[in-house]
Amino acid sequence: MTPRKDLLDIESLTDGEIRHLLEAAVPFKALFSKSVKKVNDLAGRTVLTLFYEPSTRTRSSFEIAANRLSADVTHFQVATSAVAKGESVLDTVDTLQAMKTDYIIVRHQASGIPNLIARHTSASVLNAGDGAHAHPTQALLDGFTVRETLGEDLTGKRVVIVGDWLHSRVARSTAQLFRRMGLQVGVLGPATLIPRGLPGWLHPLASWDDLLSWQPEVIYLLRVQLERQQEQFFPSVGEYHRVYGLTEQRLRQVRDAGLWVMHPGPVNRGVELTDSVLAYERSLINRQVENGIAVRMAALAWLRPGTPFRGRLPH
C-alpha cells in the first residue's frame, strides 16, 4: 500500500487504504499483550503533538502509539486559551518545519486547520480532530472495534449514532467509515443538533422506540458537548437524558436485544448514558480506548513525510 503524507479525513481515503489501516492495526494490538510492547518502525523519527484544544485522552493515545513505534515524541505547548487562527498556526508550523519534525499531530477548534497545515509543511500531518470537520483516527478505532466485535463481513448490519451531530467531528468521520465498511448508519438526536445537509445514505430515526425497531447491532452514543453550546439546543440536560439518553430502562431493552454500546469518551454520566452502562457487558467503551493506540500506530507507521518542501505562501 503506497503511503500517503497526511491523514486528514476519512473521505480522502480509498477503500483499500481503509482496509490496510484496519488490518495493519491487528498485529500492533497483539503487541499489547506482550511484555515488550515496542517496535522500531519510527525509530529516529520525530513526532510532535500540537493541540490547540485541551485533550488528555487523545493526546496520550497518540503519544503512547508513537512511543511504542520508538519515535521521539514531543509535545509542543501552545496557548489553548487564546483563539489561534490560521496566521499564528502557520507561524508555529514554520517553527516546527525548522525543527525538522517528521510527524505533526494536530487538534484545533477550527475546521480545516489540519488541511491548511498539511499544505505548508513537509511533515506528515495527522488530524487529531478539527472543529466539527473530522477525526479520522477516532473513526478508524471505531471501525476496528466494530470489525473486531461483529466480524469482517458487516454488509447490511446496522449502527445508530445518537446525539449531537451538529458539533461532532466524531459523528461525521465515524459515520463515513462505518458506511465504507458496509454498515447502515442511523441517526437519532434532537432536531436542533441534527445539521442540515445530511447525506441521503444516513437513516433518520425519530425516537428510541424507532431506533430499537430498526434493529441495529450497535448503538453509538455521542458526547453531549455542553462546553460547545453557547446557545440552547434542548430545554435541559435532564430532558435530554430522558428523551435521547441511554437510561436504565432503555439499558434493559438494549441488554435484552444484545446490542453493543460505544462512546468516544469522555462520558457525561446522567446525560447521554446512565452510570450502569459502563458496567454493561456489551459496552465497548474501554476496548475503543485500547484499540485507539493500535490504529494510531498503524496510521503513523503507514504515513510518509514529504521530501522537498516548497515553502509557504509568500506574503
Binding site: E11, G131, H133, R169, P195, G197
Partner: peptide, 15 residues
C-alpha cells in the same frame, strides 16, 4: 452556505 457541503466540512452554515 448551510447545506451538504457545510455538513461535510463541519463549517458553520449561513441558511
Amino acid at each position: 452556505n448551510e447545506g451538504p457541503t457545510s455538513f461535510r466540512l463541519g463549517v458553520p452554515g449561513v441558511p
